[in-house]
């Protein structure tokens, strides 16, 4: 199934990726091939099959409600692109 340009652009936006015109045409063709591969799944009837989300047949463990972490802000912000007075900075968000 070939992928529409509009879909491609919408997906790129949802994923916050910028695609150049060249990348768009490459993506359109490679994604169409991948979707063809994926569509092989449609050849089997799975109406009565329960989806398997996880290979592990187990249940969630719970953690005691204890504070185990201490303030490591300075160390953790050393690798941040931009900070000021303990805040991470990003270009202005317009609401």
């Amino acid at each position: 199934m070939p992928i529409e340009l509009e879909d491609l652009e919408n997906i790129a936006h949802l994923a916050r990726l910028h695609l150049s015109e060249e990348e768009k045409s490459e993506a359109a063709s490679s994604m169409s091939n991948i979707l063809k591969l994926i569509d092989q799944m449609q050849s089997v009837d799975t109406d009565n099959v329960t989806p398997l989300a996880h290979p592990l047949d187990s249940v969630q463990r719970l953690r005691d409600d204890e504070v185990t972490e201490t303030n490591k802000r300075d160390a953790l912000q050393k690798i941040a692109p931009e900070t000021d007075q303990g805040l991470f900075l990003v270009p202005k968000v317009i609401e």
């Binding site: 931009e82 000021d84 805040l87 991470f88 900075l89 990003v90 270009p91 202005k92 968000v93």
Partner: peptide
């Protein structure tokens, strides 16, 4: 929390 008031062209993020 996003803090929009503290900087003219930036938003501060407090997690």
């Amino acid at each position: 929390k996003s803090l929009h008031e503290d900087y003219p062209d930036k938003t501060g993020i407090d997690l």
